[in-house]
Design a protein around this nucleic acid. Structure first.
Lengths: 289, 289
DNA sequence: ACGCCCTGATACCCCAGGAGTATCAGGGCG
DNA sequence: CGCCCTGATACTCCTGGGGTATCAGGGCGT
């Protein structure tokens, strides 16, 4: 019995995401009938019903949900194979290091300085992304290493090395009554009247309940903070987030944030290994912020 | 630009492993010319030379070596997708737990007992494998969870939970002079005349140098030990390895072995999660052996 | 109640491209 | 010198993926 072809996986993912054969076919650039046929063949090859068809569209079965997760992972692995191979063939490929815009600013600065100071180090390209995007970029080969933050990022499936541990601070408008305090607790910060905490999407894309605004990108957040519309609890080192009319007050019982360097497991590339080694060597002599 | 198809990956892997187009074609059940063509197309689609052709066969380029690793991972992910989906469609699928034959005997026993005692727990199927096979089984979906041993197994790419830490013992024929000692060091054990330590393959399949016999399977080893031809240093709990005419002497400076339970990252299956929880609950009340 | 329309399924045809056979090209080695 | 083993090329064939046209059935508006 043959393996599935990536074409079948792509078709399946399209239907699973659109929940509509016609739209999925459109998105794939093919006609609807061959798509229906392909999915039906896929189902009978697997011996499992993936969709419940219905006059108003298609719905995923339980098995279909498993398939969606697995198919995406498999497609990522396939395009990672292509991308990494291409890059391996390129003699002076730069390493791509991805990190959240604005996070671990100083650490990144030091890391880049340290790499610049090393004689034979490969050039490094820095890619800034939004919250939660690093894992995908790393998984599908568009990046080689990432700076991520425990416990907020999804580190599943990567090798990691801890680089730095720090506390978190609350960011308040200078005029705010709490701004003069020299320490706060999460409980105090949780419901400051008129300054709700912004809500980030969870790993699955849904938002937690609460009064604060839903934010998805750093720039949305930046604007809300500048407007004095939201309160922010962030790692102490996130300097880029400081605005002139805001002050940072340590939140003593907020979970500590560990900055880690992460890379795809089994990637024994010497360039990645030496970058990780350089990063690990910074540990300890990074000044506390 | 399209994704690669798994057919192309399979073809590439066959050639990369055989290093010979004819044999690879044979193994794939196709003729040699279409295989040559497919590989050439693959190369020009990637823009990278994967093989150095030669009148005596084919050799992998650096990029080819990257591709081999990535292609295998991608193919594993694809067949994992199929396998897991099939299993998800099966209403009373048992969980498959894989472990090395003979290792962590008592822990496994306790885990199975604990699971049997739980009301709603899914049935668990135990799969015993040879050294180093767990990772592959887990990665390609033939198993759901594995008991593995740090630092000897390759845990890259899995989520893990530590279950148990223990020292190692040397296994000696009862009549041996060292058998009466109550402790040994690695240095003493390293070259006992006439009792060389068996050599296991490394992760890449090659064997370290040394005087001892090369072993690949537990049964090979069992026979060598029974014959008194090799000396064994193993975790203290590996009871199944004890033969009536051998004694176990602690090796004080051997690295400690941590038994971990491992599962594919992102597998949020409730059945796996509850099994892991049960296993973690055993931690601490496992008697030291 | 009828019929439109939107859903996915079926029927049938076409052709791109994957696979086969035969053959070539070149270098090591008897 | 010529055999043989390697992979590459030339061509032919035909499978199977894709297209168009059409069907089937149920919600819903009139």
């Amino acid at each position: 019995m043959h393996d599935l072809e990536t074409r079948e996986l792509r078709y399946f993912v399209a239907v699973a995401e659109e929940l509509h054969f016609g739209r999925a076919a459109d998105r794939l650039g093919i006609a609807q009938p061959p798509l229906s046929r392909a999915i039906r063949q896929l189902e009978q090859r697997l011996g499992v019903r993936l969709f419940d068809r219905d006059r108003r569209g298609a719905a995923l079965t339980d098995a279909g949900r498993v398939m969606l997760r697995e198919a995406k992972a498999a497609l990522d692995a396939v395009s990672a194979a292509a991308r990494r191979t291409r890059r391996a063939g390129d003699p002076q490929r730069p390493l791509v290091l991805v990190t959240k815009a604005g996070a671990s600013h100083e650490l990144l600065q030091r890391l880049l300085d340290a790499l610049a100071g090393e004689p034979g180090a490969a050039p490094v390209e820095v890619l800034l992304c939004e919250v939660g995007e690093q894992a995908g970029l790393l998984r599908d080969g568009r990046a080689d290493v990432a700076l991520m933050h425990r416990p907020y990022d999804d580190l599943a499936g990567f090798d990691t090395e801890d680089l730095h541990v720090e506390g978190q601070v609350a960011l308040l408008p200078a005029a705010h009554p709490l701004a003069s305090r020299d320490r706060l607790t999460l409980a105090e910060v949780r419901d400051v009247p008129g300054l709700p905490i912004a809500r980030w999407p969870r790993l699955d894309g849904s938002y937690p309940d609460g009064p604060g605004p839903e934010v998805r990108t750093q720039s949305q957040l930046a604007q809300l903070v500048a407007l004095g519309r939201t309160l922010l609890v962030i790692p102490a080192s996130s300097r880029a987030w400081q605005w002139p009319d805001h002050v940072a007050v340590p939140v003593v019982d907020a979970p500590e944030v560990t900055t880690v360097i992460a890379w795809p497991p089994g990637s024994r590339s010497p360039a990645v290994a030496s970058l990780v080694r350089t990063a690990a060597a910074l540990r300890g002599n990074v000044a506390e912020v």
